[in-house]
Design a protein around this nucleic acid. Sequence first.
DNA 1: CGATTGACGTACG
DNA 2: TCGTACGCCAATC
Length: 117
Amino acid sequence: MAGRFSSDPNSFFNDVYEVVAQIPRGRVTSYGAIASYLGIRGSARMVGWAMNASHTQTTQVPAHRVVNRIGMLTGRHHFGNPLIMQQLLESEGVEVVKDQVVRFKELFWDPSTELAI
DNA sequence: CGATTGACGTACG
DNA sequence: TCGTACGCCAATC
């Protein structure tokens, strides 16, 4: 998307949503990768906070494609039902065993490399 | 208004 | 290699 870095500090959440929305189906990424791409490396928690607020967003954000750096579904409890996140991933062909993405390294989608705007 | 928390990640021993 | 400590910054208590 053009102009991903607006002057408004409030646009940070929007930037996160745009990046997440561009994650290919059946692929996953991490909070830290998004944070690093947005230029706030080390503040991955803000990405997680943005995901928390994404529920209020009218636009659906595929937050289930965002996991932590080791591919664990740490945010599953925020989907209403803890099993929804895993089911969504499996419906896209992503194997999940014990709240962990199988072959995470292969399915990992780095916005800084793949998107690279 | 200070302390605590959290869908994280890196540094260090 | 593994467990613990700390930094990050906004929201909540």
